[in-house]
Simulated scan of single mutants.
Amino acid sequence: MAVGTLDGRPVAVTGADDRGVRVWDAVTGRRIGEALDGIACSARALTTGVVEGRGIVLVGSHDGTAWRADLGTGRPLGPPLRGHTDGVSAVALGTMAGRAVAVTGSRYATVRVWDAVTGEPIGEGPVFPDEVGAVAVTPDGRPAVAYGTELAVLVPLGPRTPCGQAEVEEVTVSASRDRPLSSEM
């Protein structure tokens, strides 16, 4: 489930194995329109955001694809994003170096960054040692990835460049019940 706004009202977006991604009025609980049109996937992860003034939903699928759709019309914004070999288990929308991006993570431990407008991949994503459970974009524009019981924040080496055009250094921050928060480089 994801939450957002549509025409000034709060909405919830849900996905199911029946390939139905649906938008609901978060106040009344009533469904808005039909299932999002043309999204041929079973949703595993959902997020909403605003890209170029348009509300969109990003859907991660069990088949290794992710879909971008207009939140108001339900129409897909281009073909699916392909680049994972297993189900997309985590999705995020954000801004990196002034560019709207979609970030996807998979059960097969891969992370990909995409141009949120065109759907084109941005560079090659890193591979992690365990399933990716969550992705985010930090307020300062860096991708953050939760994998297994760890968290990595990717930072560019050298001057700030658009994601995918610079090498990255992995900084791991981890915590558990038995171990306080620590940082390793």
Rank of each mutant, 00 (worst) to 15 (best):
E52I: 00
E34A: 15
V155N: 06
D25L: 05
S89Q: 12
L93R: 13
E170H: 13
L151W: 05
A90C: 01
P139H: 11
E150G: 00
V13T: 10
R9L: 14
Y147P: 05
G123R: 10
T65V: 08
D25N: 09
L77C: 04
V111W: 02
A175M: 09
R19K: 11
G87A: 08
T172G: 00
C163Y: 11
E131K: 06
G83M: 01
A45Q: 04
E52Y: 04
A2C: 11
P10A: 14
G60K: 03
F128W: 11
D7W: 12
V171W: 04
P139Y: 08
R107D: 09
G53K: 03
T48P: 07
V88W: 04
G74M: 09
E34L: 08
T110V: 02
G94P: 05
M1T: 15
T85V: 00
V11T: 10
S176Y: 01
G15E: 05
A146W: 07
D130A: 14
R19T: 13
D63W: 08
D63K: 00
G94M: 02
D17Q: 06
G164T: 05
P162H: 10
A2M: 10
L77D: 10
A2Q: 13
E150H: 15
S174I: 00
V27E: 15
V57T: 15
E120T: 12
A100N: 14
P162I: 01
P180W: 10
R107W: 12
E150N: 13
R112W: 01
L157R: 13
T172Q: 11
L36K: 00
R19D: 14
D63L: 03
G53N: 08
S176L: 01
A2L: 12
G94C: 04
T48Q: 08
R54I: 00
V51L: 13
L81I: 05
V59H: 02
G20E: 15
R99P: 04
A12V: 15
R179M: 13
D25M: 06
T14M: 12
A69K: 13
L81P: 07
S61A: 15
A102H: 06
S183E: 12
T5D: 12
I56A: 00
V155E: 14
R54F: 11
S176A: 11
S176W: 03
T104F: 04
T95P: 02
A45S: 15
T5P: 01
I56M: 00
P162Q: 09
V23A: 05
E124M: 08
D25F: 02
R31T: 11
V111R: 01
A166W: 02
G38N: 07
S176T: 15
G119N: 09
G20N: 13
V88L: 03
V113N: 03
A92R: 07
G53W: 02
L77E: 12
P139K: 06
G119W: 00
A69M: 13
L71Y: 10
P129F: 10
R19W: 14
C163R: 04
D7F: 03
L157I: 09
A90R: 03
G33A: 11
A40V: 00
G98H: 09
T85L: 00
D86E: 09
A40Q: 08
A136R: 07
G94H: 05
G53L: 06
L151H: 01
G133N: 12
T110H: 03
L46M: 09
T65N: 13
D7L: 14
T73F: 02
V59E: 04
V101F: 09
S182C: 11
S42T: 09
